[in-house]
């Protein structure tokens, strides 16, 4: 049974300070010009208000855009490897949307299946997610069509829902969540009979996920991929803003003696992604890459990992420079005869 408490908005700054005093870095959405980005903050006053969705997702706390994998020193004919990257310091990510929190299940499925990715696991273990339910949504949101909701608790350690102007209902969902409460028990009060549902955004279900998953395996050769992606310019924006996109590149950098191996975000939208050294490319043109994006999320991952690789946050569509709207394209695929 989830432990329900309340916390005043005016207490959040105290909570932030207590968490920092406890040795945690606190990341929260901060407004920068037209964007809202997760950044380390030193108090609640820095947190952006009144946004539907952050520009980039919270995944960067777990999967940095550029992450050290190992260090090495090379001499004439010998190599020495140094200890892996320093242990990540504990992080609390505040203000994560429930859709983003759900995306952690996708990342877990990729990074922890078969081969345990310790770089990811360590970050994941030391990260606490304090999510905030969505009181509003926009035309790009479709979490409810992919199994989520504006008040979903999946993936969060604590979920806050604003139930009046100054009070959050706090659902304490995991041990990590309890640990946060235990740092500042006085800031939390026992919850009454408040229910969050009437405080959540109304996000209508827009397509039948089951029908989509049934349709895709037979749709590989369809003309729809070309039609839909004619305007796609092949940048990586959709992948990089996506909380559930996990593909990466590996790069070495060295000064000739000492060097590092990094992993960096990569995107199936890039032609280079699959290019063989010989010059042969299994996905030569953009329509094949667009197909891969949809197939991977809505067919391959459900089939192989039992998770849908999309949480309906709508970021890819909002950020796309050429208005590739994933919701619209999926609906078109579901409805096509």
């Amino acid at each position: 049974m989830t432990d329900k408490k309340t916390i005043k908005k005016s207490s959040l700054d105290d909570l932030f300070k207590k968490m920092m005093a406890d040795g945690k870095r606190v990341l929260a959405p901060v407004r920068k010009g037209e964007t809202v980005l997760f950044q380390e903050v030193d108090g609640y006053s820095a947190v952006a208000a009144d946004y539907v969705q952050t520009t980039l997702s919270a995944k960067e706390a777990l999967l940095p855009r550029c992450e050290e994998m190992m260090r090495f020193t090379t001499a004439q004919s010998t190599v020495s490897l140094e200890e892996g990257p320093a242990k990540p310091s504990p992080v609390v990510v505040f203000g994560v949307r429930p859709c983003d929190a759900r995306s952690i299940a996708v990342v877990n499925a990729v990074y922890l299946k078969d081969y345990n990715d310790a770089l990811y696991k360590e970050k994941s273990d030391s990260t606490t997610i304090i999510a905030v339910s969505c009181a509003k949504s926009d035309e790009y949101c479709f979490c409810t069509s992919v199994g989520g909701s504006p008040g979903s608790t999946e993936g969060s350690d604590i979920l806050l829902t604003l139930i009046d102007g100054d009070t959050y209902l706090a659902e304490i969902l995991t041990d990590k969540g309890k640990a946060v409460v235990s740092i500042a028990p006085a800031l939390f009060a026992a919850a009454g009979s408040e229910v969050k549902e009437k405080h959540l955004a109304d996000v209508p279900v827009q397509f039948d996920l089951g029908a989509l998953e049934k349709k895709l395996p037979g749709a590989f050769d369809g003309a729809v991929w070309i039609t839909q992606s004619l305007r796609c310019i092949g940048c990586g924006t959709c992948s990089y803003v996506c909380p559930a996109c996990t593909c990466f590149d590996i790069q070495d950098e060295t000064d000739g003696t000492r060097g590092m191996r990094f992993r960096c975000w990569d995107s199936c939208g890039f032609g280079q992604f699959t290019l063989h050294t010989s010059g042969h490319n299994p996905r030569e043109v953009q329509s094949q890459r667009w197909r891969q994006r949809i197939m991977h999320k809505f067919s391959y991952q459900p089939d192989q990992l039992q998770v849908v690789g999309c949480v309906g946050c709508g970021r890819c569509s909002r950020a796309c420079p050429v208005d590739m709207n994933i919701l619209q394209h999926i609906k078109d695929i579901v409805e096509a005869r």
Binding site: V110, Y111, K113, D114, Y115, D117, F220, T246, C247, F248, D249, I250, R263, D266, C268, F273, T274, L275, H276, T277, P282, Q292, M295, H296, S299, Y300, D303, Q304
Partner: peptide, 19 residues
């Protein structure tokens, strides 16, 4: 079969042929 690979362990996401 061969395809471009980076990680070799099913995580970097580029060598798939279908699923």
């Amino acid at each position: 079969l061969e395809n471009r690979m980076k990680c070799g362990i099913g995580k970097c996401g580029r060598c798939n042929v279908g699923k």
